[in-house]
Design a protein around this nucleic acid. Structure first.
Lengths: 141, 141
DNA sequence: TGCCATACATACCAAAAGGAGAGTATCACC
DNA sequence: GGTGATACTCTCCTTTTGGTATGTATGGCA
């Protein structure tokens, strides 16, 4: 995980920098909220991470590396990601079947964007666990 | 939405820059994955956004601004966010009750981290909708 | 003497998510 | 002729999620 090149991270930061985000079109906003809901999904994020780390990969291997994902969820999530243009799916017509998945440019930039959240989580996990302990302690003294 | 100060964004970017993310402690990784699953939730993100935009706010008003959220989900999500140390909850012992919610520093930095994803979504929504149209077109010609 | 406002808690119910397991197609290999 | 490998799909079932509707406490106000 967290394996985005410095160039990718720099690109993401450049985006963040040059956009003064102050539009409030309600229609766009709804679309964006939906999109975020779609993309901020557990399996989507984990698959994104594995593909960013390992590049092109086959179905079963991908499932192993993600860990704890059922075939159903893996297929489903990969299809949605393909539909959104985040991954490419190339079928090699051989027997036994061989299908390879790889991130598109769009997928890579999304991975870079999520990188900030991932870093936030790794950096603040201690504070959050402490906050939880405090909260639970106050609740049940 | 998208109302983080330039300083916050700069801080988030600084984080992204100085951290060479190459640890692979499996225990930490699991914790981080859980945390992300917790935090990358639809209502959490929307509440975060509203609080970042408007600062301190009361329960009912917050619900109105988030839009489309039930009382149950609002209470539930706010409790979880409070437990994680993302918001403070101050009860004014008056009648009728008055409770105010406000982001903590931790909440603000999380908002800043998500900012990149939000910007990614707004910038790429057209490409994604196009990708979806292409995909659906190929599926049903 | 009601009635209202606020910030919940609680109970019930419908819908959706997601896991387990079996089935399928095809060819190579033993 | 039977077995195995791969990438699925399909069905059944359980768990989770989330909405609605209702209850509650309290004091000011008409």
């Amino acid at each position: 995980m967290r394996t985005f090149s410095p160039e990718q991270i720099a690109a993401a930061k450049a985006h963040t920098a040059h956009t003064p985000p102050d539009d409030i079109d309600p229609k766009i906003e709804a679309l964006v909220n939906d999109l975020i809901g779609r993309v901020a999904d557990k399996w989507t994020m984990l698959i994104l991470e594995v593909l960013a780390e390992h590049g092109q990969m086959r179905f079963t291997q991908l499932g192993r590396l993600v860990g704890g994902i059922s075939q159903k969820m893996l297929t489903q999530t990969l299809r949605l990601m393909e539909r959104d243009g985040l991954v490419t799916r190339t079928v090699h017509p051989v027997v036994p079947p061989k299908v390879e998945y790889e991130l598109t440019d769009l997928g890579l930039t999304l991975g870079a964007a999520f990188c900030g959240v991932w870093i936030w989580a790794t950096e603040n996990i201690d504070r959050i666990e402490q906050a939880r302990r405090d909260f639970d302690h106050k609740a049940t003294p």
